[in-house]
């Protein structure tokens, strides 16, 4: 099967001449459908730039990027916008939501942009809100939500258009660990249940360890690209690794799964 994203000799240079800064250097990678990939690295290593390039938010200086086998450089801006709108979902560390609008309005923004019919758009948004378990908050203004709830709204917004690839830039960066776990569970549930390809940019090694694959970036170069063999379902691991003692019903269930070695 064709990789969903394929990068060949991708480079990104900021600035010109003496002040030029090499943000990405000769990146080669393939991401397959349904994979969960962690891009890790220190601040300024180029991991965010890589994600922006993969998400077509930024254009590489040289090299080639293929989305579903199609060359990104050949795409017209209209098709590019459509691609981002229909196939990608974005979750940001700082949430980026309109705090004066309700949860529902925030979640249906991608559908509004795609021009989906009003009725249809509302139904899809409510479904997405249900997925992140915020159905009772649909009519609440976003500014009245907690950080964790806001990030769940962002996830709902990211999945409302049923994307193939979900890009998450430090999704737990602004959250306390307990709330962060819930978000991680949500993301991996999507990965497992719906087969959404997950690309997470993080400097949290624990979060990275939950993914199928870890790509480490240093000074704009891939220094490590390794698969992580897991026995258990990542969502369960997430709960397991952080909650001690594991007495919550979810953790118990996870333990049970771990024993059985269940993996969906």
């Amino acid at each position: 099967m064709e990789p969903v994203i394929e990068a060949k000799h991708l480079s990104k240079i900021y600035g010109k001449g003496a002040t030029a800064f090499l943000a990405l250097s000769d990146i080669n990678l393939k991401i397959n459908h349904g994979e969960s990939v962690a891009i890790v690295g220190k601040s300024g290593s180029g991991k965010s730039t890589l994600m922006h390039c993969l998400a077509l938010l930024d254009t590489p200086t040289s090299g080639e990027l293929k989305i579903d086998g199609e060359k990104a450089s050949k795409l017209k801006s209209r098709k590019l916008n459509r691609l981002r709108n229909r196939r990608f979902g974005f979750v940001f560390q700082q949430f980026f939501m309109n705090s004066n609008e309700t949860v529902l309005e925030n979640v249906l923004l991608p559908l509004k942009i795609s021009g989906t019919r009003r009725k249809h758009r509302k139904r899809l948004a409510l479904e997405a809100i249900e997925t992140v378990e915020l159905a009772d908050k649909a009519r609440v203004k976003s500014k009245n939500l907690s950080g964790g709830q806001k990030q769940r709204v962002c996830i709902a917004r990211a999945i409302v258009n049923n994307p193939k690839i979900l890009f998450a830039d430090e999704p737990t960066g602004n959250l306390d660990s307990a709330t962060g776990e819930k978000i991680i569970k949500l993301l991996f549930d999507l990965n497992h249940d719906k087969g959404v390809t997950l690309i997470i940019v993080t400097h949290d090694e624990d979060l990275a360890a939950l993914c199928d694959r870890r790509i480490r970036i240093t000074d704009g170069k891939i220094v490590v690209d390794e698969s992580i063999k897991h026995v258990t379902r990542p969502a369960a691991r997430a709960i397991n690794s952080k909650t001690k003692p594991a007495n919550t019903p979810e953790a118990k269930k996870a333990k049970k799964n771990q024993k059985k070695g269940v993996r969906k």
Partner: peptide, 14 residues
């Protein structure tokens, strides 16, 4: 600025 950035990221055309 942010709102515009988000909308553009989500595929809203220039």
């Amino acid at each position: 600025t942010r709102e515009i950035g988000l909308e553009k990221a989500l595929g809203l055309s220039k």
